[in-house]
Simulated assay, not measured.
Amino acid sequence: MSVIDGPRLAPVSGRPATSLVVFLHGYGADGRDLIDIGRSWAPELPDCAFVSPHAPEPCGMAPTGRQWFPLTLRDPTEYWRGAVHAAPALHGFLDAERARLQIAENRIVLVGFSQGTMMALHVGLRRPSAPGAIIGYSGKLAGPEHLGEVKVKPPITLIHGDRDEVLPIDLLFEATDALGAADIPVSFHISPGVGHGIDQRGLLLGLAAVREALG
């Protein structure tokens, strides 16, 4: 199993962390890509720590970036197989962070972007107990046909631009339909005019979901 790590932010309060937000970056990026969201959210979450691990593999299409799993975009099953392959490293990382901070699983929120959303959904729904929430931007649910194996049902918020040219917005509806059919609580927001990215409204909605999950 690969060991992963990445940039961290301690709580701005200076007190021990009572919660943790874990950012999972997209294909070809690395942990530095999303950690600045933590800096913008920190004043509203003063006792929360933030971490943004680098995915375990060098990216085949972006030599300076990382990938959770390789993509060819030719095989529709590669998302599921890739998520299964990458899951042990992320599970191990979450276990280590929870033990390091001495916090409960429901005090952890997973926030993903693109391929990171695939990992947040895959791993977050297969933890020993439910995380506080899962928030996914511009992503996809890998292997919706496998949701029958899921035992935990954390609240999920999905946010997607209606001009996304990389992962079309149809994937948002595919995910919400499958999650709803599995009785997993899910809400969604469509970002008008936004491509494969996150706008300010999306960031505010993500922060609101984190605050609701962590009280």
Rank of each mutant, 00 (worst) to 15 (best):
L71A: 10
F69Y: 15
G206S: 11
H122P: 10
I4A: 02
G82R: 05
L203G: 03
F23I: 00
P70W: 06
G116T: 08
C59Q: 13
T176G: 07
E57Y: 15
G38V: 02
I37Q: 01
Y137Q: 02
I159V: 09
A42S: 13
P154H: 02
G193H: 12
L73A: 14
L125C: 11
P56K: 07
L34K: 08
M118N: 05
A86S: 15
V84Q: 15
S2Q: 13
V210Q: 03
G139Q: 02
R66W: 05
H85I: 09
D30Q: 02
G132R: 03
W41F: 15
G124L: 13
D95N: 09
G65M: 03
A213I: 07
P53T: 02
E174Q: 10
V3A: 08
A178E: 06
M1H: 12
E165R: 14
A175I: 08
A213P: 11
T117W: 11
L158W: 02
A142V: 10
D36P: 00
A130R: 10
G195C: 12
S13Y: 00
G124S: 10
V166E: 06
A209P: 01
D177G: 08
W41A: 10
V3Q: 11
M61K: 11
G197W: 05
K140P: 00
E78Q: 15
L204V: 07
G143Q: 09
H85W: 12
I159F: 00
P154Q: 07
G215M: 04
D30I: 01
G139P: 06
L172F: 07
V152S: 12
L45Q: 04
S138T: 12
P144A: 13
G60K: 11
P16L: 02
S114T: 04
S187M: 04
P63R: 09
K153D: 06
S129M: 04
S129D: 14
V109Y: 06
I156S: 09
P185T: 13
P46E: 06
A130Y: 02
I134K: 07
A142C: 12
E44T: 11
R201E: 13
G215D: 14
A55G: 15
P154A: 07
I37P: 00
G60M: 07
I37M: 14
L121Y: 04
G197Y: 10
L45V: 06
I103H: 10
R100V: 08
G136D: 02
E149L: 10
L147Q: 12
E149F: 07
G82K: 12
G202W: 00
M119C: 07
K140E: 03
A208I: 05
S19M: 04
E212D: 12
G26V: 05
I4H: 05
L141H: 14
P11R: 00
T157K: 07
K153G: 02
R8F: 01
H196P: 12
A208R: 13
G148W: 08
L71G: 07
A178M: 06
I159G: 03
S40I: 08
T157L: 09
E78V: 14
F69S: 01
G26L: 05
P63I: 08
A178W: 09
P58E: 05
A55C: 13
K153S: 14
L121G: 11
L34A: 02
K153P: 01
I159S: 03
E165L: 10
C48H: 00
R163G: 03
H146R: 15
L214K: 09
V84K: 15
P76E: 15
P58D: 11
H54R: 14
P70S: 14
R66L: 07
A55L: 06
